[in-house]
Simulated assay, not measured.
Amino acid sequence: MNVILIGYMASGKSTIGRVLAEKLNHHFIDLDDYIEKKEQISIGNIFKSKGEIYFRKLEKKYLKAILENENHVVLSLGGGTPCYGDNMNLILNDANSISIYLKTSIAALVSRLKNEKSKRPLIAHIETDDLLAEFIGKHLFERSQYYNLAETKIVTDGKAGTEIVEELMATLL
């Protein structure tokens, strides 16, 4: 069984995913890292040199390959992955996977993202915390229709990583 973690950037998908994979004795895959390794270029440079549409096509290609060829993995998706093409349908129709939405508030996301904007192509240009909160709010509104299709939702606000992992373990076992 594969566990697919979805949610907005900085919702904890990679951090929680690594710990969860260890607890489940699964392999951990961060889709963005996987793409960078396969393409031998950073996500930021893919966005700069080839654009977002090209990146989204790569994302789908590798998501599909992982779903078809991997078993016993915890897969952390990029924040936009479920929202493009038929990616969410691929996830939901994969009988070997369960999807989990790590739901995080705008305030918590701003707090986590404000100091790492340069590493995030979609928000690198945003100058103030207020503008970042506005951007995240708009994005979450657009993306929540996809995120909420996940089979399970876990609210992450105010919880330590260990508490979130315990909640996930209880859901999965």
Rank of each mutant, 00 (worst) to 15 (best):
R18H: 13
R18G: 06
V19N: 04
L20V: 11
L20S: 11
A21K: 00
K23Q: 14
K23F: 01
I29Y: 13
D30G: 10
D32Y: 12
D32L: 04
D33V: 00
Y34E: 14
I35P: 05
E36S: 10
E36C: 10
K37C: 09
K37E: 15
S42K: 13
S42L: 08
S42D: 02
G44V: 01
I46Y: 05
F47W: 03
F47S: 01
K48W: 00
S49W: 00
S49K: 14
K50T: 03
G51N: 07
E52Q: 14
R56D: 10
R56K: 13
L58Y: 10
K61G: 04
K61N: 09
Y62C: 02
Y62N: 07
Y62I: 08
Y62H: 14
Y62A: 04
L63T: 07
K64N: 12
A65F: 11
A65D: 15
I66G: 03
L67P: 09
L67F: 06
E68L: 14
E70T: 13
N71D: 11
V74R: 12
L75V: 07
L75K: 02
S76T: 08
S76E: 05
S76V: 08
L77M: 11
L77N: 04
G78C: 11
G79M: 08
G79F: 07
T81F: 12
P82H: 02
P82K: 02
C83K: 02
Y84M: 07
G85D: 10
G85T: 00
N89A: 15
N89G: 06
L90T: 07
L90K: 06
L92N: 14
N93R: 12
D94G: 09
A95I: 09
S97A: 14
S97M: 08
I98G: 00
I98H: 05
Y101I: 06
L102Q: 11
L102A: 11
L102H: 05
T104M: 00
S105D: 11
I106A: 05
I106D: 02
I106C: 14
A108D: 13
A108H: 01
